[in-house]
C-alpha cells in the first residue's frame, strides 16, 4: 500500500498551506471596506463622503428667492449673466441664516478685477484705465453695479 514512505511531512506542509491560504482570505475579508467593489475597484462609500461636503457658494437660485428686486434690475442690464456670488463672494451661510449679513463691497477694488484695461482681453469686453476714467472715485459713484450702463438709465 505504502507507495511513498515518510509522507507525514507532506501532510504537515499541506496543512500549513491550507491554514495560510485561509488566513489570507479571512484577513482580506476583514480589512477590505464593505463597499469596495460596489461600482468598481474602489470604495463605493467614497462617493457619498465626497457628495456630503457642505457648499460655500449658495448658488444664484438661492439668492433669487429673496432678492427679487435685484433680479429685476439685474436681468434688464449688462450684468444679467453675472451671478450674485461672482462679486459678493461665498454666501451659503447668509442663505442659511439671513441675519448673517455679508460685508459691503468696495467697488473701487472690485470692478477693476474684470474691467481693468488690458490688450490681452477680448476686444468687445468693456475695459477702462481706472485712474483716467474715474480719477480714483469709486465706480458706484456713477454706475449702479446691478445695471451698470449709464446710457440705459443706470446713472445714479
Amino acid at each position: 500500500m505504502a507507495i511513498f514512505k515518510d509522507t507525514g511531512h507532506l501532510f504537515r506542509f499541506a496543512a500549513l498551506f491550507v491554514v495560510g491560504t485561509t488566513s489570507i482570505f479571512v484577513l482580506r475579508a476583514i480589512v477590505t471596506p464593505k463597499s469596495f467593489g460596489q461600482y468598481g475597484h474602489y470604495r463605493g462609500a467614497a462617493l457619498k463622503d465626497l457628495a456630503d461636503r457642505p457648499v460655500k457658494y449658495a448658488g444664484h437660485q438661492a439668492c433669487e428667492v429673496c432678492h427679487t428686486d435685484i433680479v429685476t434690475t439685474k436681468t434688464a442690464g449688462k450684468h444679467a449673466g453675472v451671478n450674485c456670488e461672482a462679486c459678493h463672494g461665498p454666501l451659503a451661510k447668509h442663505a442659511d441664516d439671513p441675519s448673517n449679513t455679508p460685508a459691503k463691497l468696495d467697488t473701487a477694488v472690485l470692478c477693476v478685477k474684470c474691467h481693468a484695461a488690458s490688450a490681452a482681453k477680448p476686444k468687445g469686453f468693456p475695459q477702462v484705465q481706472a485712474d483716467d476714467h474715474s480719477g480714483g472715485l469709486a465706480c458706484d459713484t456713477c454706475h449702479k453695479p446691478h445695471d451698470p450702463a449709464i446710457a440705459a438709465g443706470g446713472a445714479k
Binding site: K56, Y57, G59, E85
Partner: peptide
C-alpha cells in the same frame, strides 16, 4: 448646483 468656478465665471 453648478460648480463653484462655473457659478462665479462672470
Amino acid at each position: 448646483l453648478t460648480t463653484a468656478c462655473c457659478e462665479n465665471c462672470p
